[in-house]
Amino acid sequence: MHPALSVIIFTTASGAGYGLLALSGLFAAVDWLPRDGSAGGWAIGSALVLVTGGLLASTAHLGRPERAWRALSQWRTSWLSREGLLALASYVPALVFLAGWLLPEAVPWGPWGLLAAVAALLTVYATGKIYATLTPIPAWNNGLVVPGYLVLGGLGGMQILSLIMAATDHYHERFGWIVLLFATCAALVKHGYWRDIARTRSETGSATATGLGAGGERVRLLDAPHTTDNFVMREMGYRIARRHATRLRQICTSTLFAVPAMLALVSTLIDNWFGLVVTTALATASVAIGTLIERWLFFAEARHVVTAYYGSETV
């Protein structure tokens, strides 16, 4: 699949944003979010900025962004529609949560934080579902896709939360442990996913796509319909060299899991403001880069069955 920048930025930013929002809501509920100062406000605010930025980026993917609102109508059937609705809906608890946080006397934020957390989780879940339900893309139609989105959103959110807490001098050692937990889960999910997609062979290929290989013969494309690539091939025909994929997975493993995990451990040993800010900032940058690469790979490595019509004997 063609790795479209707008979609990569969208899922990365909004994933982290929703993760941050969800964690803020949950932490607030268990009182891990410091009540004094503006740290919590920064967290919720940043979450909303990330989410909004992501959503705006996603409209760049649309041919008719001005009609984006129409995407709300098909929530009965479409995960994209549901995602849109949930994304919009999550603004309500999130904003109330934020307002309550900033003006606790005026607005009771209590349940809204939890509500925002649930909405955020559901939104990320819906995002994951958009991909996971696409049967023509075997690599996406995989049980680890939704957990992947959730856990990476959590990791990103947690990392940003750590940074904000460090910057506002509210860092707590447990943040490091939670990052470590997320990073470990992410590593497990992602590696499980990669192993999965390498192992599962799709039934679909040029033989079933054309119905001509029933006798077990090879079905090879001799001539594509046109000598130029069309939309379908530009969109769905993207192929990444195995060499690059392996390299990128390695980078991904280190930036997304190893570096943040290590820095998280380090952070538990540091107790000066500057040191904490630097470690969490580095870890955040690493996770951001890692997630972008992961998302890019998520697209680039996924093969659409339509390629069976354009030269791939297997998908």
């Binding site: 041919g63 008719r64 984006a68 479409s78 696409l134 023509p136 939309f231 659409h304």
Partner: peptide
Amino acid sequence: DTCIGCKLCSWACPYGAREYDHADGVM
């Protein structure tokens, strides 16, 4: 008149039957 050009349907079609028109921004 209502397509937003999100291209999701083209991903959902295994047969490559959907053709996006960049000029109109619709499928």
